[in-house]
Computed example of a mutant assay.
Amino acid sequence: MRTDQQVTRALRTLSVAYFVQAVGALSVIGSLEPIGREWGLSNAEGAYLMTAFGITFALAAPLLQVLLGHLHRQRQVLLGLCVFGAGALLFAAAPTYPVLVVSRIVMGLGAAFIGPVLAALGSSLVSSERQGSAIAIVLLGLSVAGLAGIPLSSWVAYQVGVRSLFLAISVAAFATALLIAWQVPNQSEGQRVALSTLFKLLTRAHSLSVFGVAFFVTASVYTTYSFIAPIVHDFYNGSAHDVSIALLVLGVAGVTGNLLVTRLAARHSSDRLLVGSMSVLAILMLALGAGPRSLGWLFLMLVMWALATDVIWPSQQRRVIEHLAEYRGAALALTAAFVFCGIGSGAAVAGWVYPIAGFTGLLGASFALMVLAVVCMLISAKRSPLRAQAV
């Protein structure tokens, strides 16, 4: 029998794993300029490193749960962290761009093992009435990554070097694996996802449209967010320091958004919260395009951007559970896959659009993707079994 103090230490250790994964996954966004200098790449080529990671995660996350989901969850996380750390080490040593791409694929494969099982592993350590607070502790690592980890990674990339940044991420991944092996018990059994369940969810119009909301919203956000560093440099005449500040603003506002959504969720449906926050994002895209080219205006828009997106993420998870309750585990795994596919696709769109149409083109592409998210939301609402029951 483990004491409350031991359980708390285990949950905090899992939170550290989430922090390391999030920083390793998203640090490329704030480091496009240093990556370009180190390997002689364009911003578009740097953004495709996000695409390689996101697409790999999207494809691997559900397939790994089909093939290896039966392994104990602690072992899945340990394996994922070791693969993730090896990918980061390869990035730090990469001599050429193709090796960089391979390193991001390896990191995406490791993350596909880590992300889908961390919350499940944390919730298995406590009684049913404490599972909500346990998951909140684990997810805190994600919020701290946005608040401090990603801005700090940008600063390290600019001031110390991007190779040193990914070497540090590699060391952190292996160190976290050792901590988990020490602090987290290996007693939570995994659950293999049936391939037939995935096929069913991916071939029904209702479930596909539910996942489509997650995909298009994420792609919309990351089409602009992936190029935040070049945007600050090229359109707002900002410095490397200003890039770090922009990421810090997003992180601080994001933590505030996490606190806000817990209050809103008790009063409003997931559909209402999604419609409201998606509308706010669409308005912000128009405001950024038409607004002044001043850093103060950009930071103000980023605050509202982060608040809106932090209402979207948990609301779409809640909506998936409401619409696909019968397939909750598989549906959440697929949602994570569609989200990371959206991240990768958004980065790819940004890499294609920015050199041709600049900041205005990015905002226009983001707006168009948001419209597609609304279309998917309308389709899923129309086909929802909840609506049929109400009728």
Results as ranks from 00 to 15, higher is better:
303 V>C: 06
323 H>D: 05
334 L>A: 04
307 L>P: 08
335 T>G: 15
313 W>E: 13
297 W>N: 00
334 L>N: 03
317 Q>V: 08
322 E>L: 07
316 Q>I: 13
301 M>F: 02
327 Y>D: 06
337 A>D: 11
331 A>Q: 11
322 E>D: 03
336 A>S: 14
307 L>F: 09
331 A>M: 14
318 R>C: 11
304 M>W: 08
302 L>V: 02
314 P>G: 09
308 A>I: 09
311 V>F: 01
312 I>A: 10
309 T>M: 09
329 G>S: 13
313 W>R: 12
327 Y>V: 15
314 P>T: 10
297 W>K: 00
319 R>Y: 13
338 F>V: 08
314 P>C: 05
303 V>K: 01
300 L>G: 04
317 Q>D: 03
330 A>K: 12
337 A>C: 05
333 A>G: 09
333 A>Y: 14
306 A>W: 00
333 A>R: 12
300 L>Y: 01
319 R>V: 14
334 L>T: 15
302 L>P: 07
303 V>M: 04
305 W>I: 04
323 H>S: 14
335 T>N: 11
323 H>R: 13
325 A>I: 12
331 A>K: 05
327 Y>A: 03
335 T>E: 05
303 V>W: 00
318 R>A: 15
306 A>I: 05
322 E>G: 07
327 Y>T: 14
326 E>P: 09
299 F>K: 02
